[in-house]
Design a protein around this nucleic acid. Structure first.
Lengths: 153, 153
DNA sequence: TCTGATAGTCAGGGTTCCTGAACAACTATC
DNA sequence: GATAGTTGTTCAGGAACCCTGACTATCAGA
């Protein structure tokens, strides 16, 4: 009998696989964006653009949509404003609030990011096969409790 | 024509889906462990147990295996030692080194974690279907560049 | 024995997120 | 129209997680 069994959690579980895939994906996206000159944004900043609209969005709305504290979102917006990706304009209907809007550079970053993400997804789809990739996306949606199309809540 | 197109990165991409699934999974694992009395460990501490062996493992080896700096692993081990999950014993063959070994509580935590992870994976497999779950695991392995069985490098 | 590599720690920093507290402005109500 | 409560934002401080640089002690080979 072996007196020295391994102690670890056993084979690599789903959580580890998900995390590794996530970090690889996001790392690749930001590497490619950096090559295109967008080397001053960090992954956390993407949360700002994720829910930004052309006409401007309030800080609290961005925070709610990203499920982080308004103070945290405020810091991200401060960064992006300093870097020239977004601007704050006064909300004409509410003097407490500011509307956060993308600048031209911000719009350029979003265009570049969309292309990079789409290209990377296509590349991964070719790697594992279109069908399995589609199944992966659907399965993740289901696990995440997302409706196939979209979900606002 | 619409003068106000959305600015965000488009539909939710693979990276977001992966991250959301990861956080849900890990959150559920630690919730269940907390219910069983293991409420003083944080996710980062799992990296210690992941590569621990009964006879003891050096800090540097744990750090290499987890791909983090020795200083970071040292802090995790400090925590777990203070919490009674692991102990440090002098390496009889190398006075520079300490061997990190699980305590009985550490072994109990690993047993509990294995059960929780297995149960959660079974639950998710039932949710999306056994076949699709198996495909998910395989596809993630392939995307992660892992050989189906195991991989050390 | 000297030299370089290795094990571990101390000090300090960056990123990402949090809570608590404050203040201004809005809104509903009496 | 004064008051009370809510909302938008910011300031201050801290926790978790990881990093690099610098240092000491020890080992191992020339």
């Amino acid at each position: 009998m072996s007196s020295d069994p391994p102690v670890g959690y056993g084979r690599r579980h789903l959580g580890i696989k998900l995390r590794q895939a996530y970090e690889t994906f996001i790392g690749e996206v930001f590497d490619r964006l950096a090559e295109q000159g967008f080397d001053d944004m960090r992954p956390a900043h993407a949360q700002v653009f994720q829910n930004l609209r052309e006409e401007g969005v309030r800080l609290t709305e961005l925070a709610r949509a990203a499920a982080i504290a308004p103070q945290s979102m405020g810091a991200l917006v401060d960064d992006l404003e300093r870097l020239g990706y977004v601007e704050r304009v006064r909300d004409p209907h509410d003097r407490r609030a500011a509307l956060i809007r993308p600048t031209e550079r911000g719009r350029a970053e979003v265009r570049a990011a969309r292309k990079v993400i789409a290209a990377l997804e296509r590349q991964w789809a070719r790697t594992v096969g279109e069908e399995r990739f589609a199944t992966l996306m659907e399965t993740l949606d289901e696990l995440n409790g997302d409706a196939p199309a979209d979900r606002l809540l």
